[in-house]
């Protein structure tokens, strides 16, 4: 199927640029005339995932593929990994450092928000190696 792809590189700890990928994808979806509610869901999920890499990992890649039916986002990072994925999915659970929390992040809403706003969410992780998050959102209702 035809479609378009985007790739972004994310640096761990780079809070200055956190959100750039989300902002560009948001613009693309606006250009594609996707419904505003759907754009909102994609952007919330992607932004949370992007910030997770910045807050927790050393570095990561975001691969975005958009076709006429859905958007699929794969965020693959090199980092500490998640010890207990089920626990991380709980609202309010956070392992963010105090300095990250002081910047307004790390409220323990990241994965729950992604789950809430996406049609498909898969988290695979290996402690000490990294995490891969896959998010899919249908673009047509």
């Amino acid at each position: 199927m035809s479609g378009i792809t985007f790739t972004y590189k994310i640096e761990g700890g780079d809070f200055v640029n956190a959100g750039k990928a989300s902002s560009e994808i948001k613009r693309t979806l606006k250009q594609l005339n996707v419904a505003q509610k759907t754009i909102r869901r994609v952007v919330v999920s992607l932004y949370e995932a992007e910030v997770n890499i910045v807050a927790h990992a050393h570095r990561g890649n975001i691969d975005v593929a958009i076709n006429s039916e859905n958007i699929s986002i794969i965020l693959k990072d090199e980092g500490p990994g998640i010890k207990d994925i089920d626990k991380a999915m709980e609202v309010g659970f956070s392992t963010a450092s105090p300095s990250v929390i002081s910047m307004g992040f790390g409220a323990g809403m990241g994965l729950p928000n992604m789950k809430k706003n996406s049609d498909y969410l898969n988290v695979e992780s290996e402690v000490g190696v990294g995490t891969t998050v896959t998010i899919k959102v249908a673009l047509i209702e």
Partner: peptide, 13 residues
């Protein structure tokens, strides 16, 4: 919106 490429998402894509 003046941002959209086309009203039809297929054409826009």
């Amino acid at each position: 919106s003046i941002i959209k490429f086309d009203s039809d998402p297929m054409k826009a894509l």
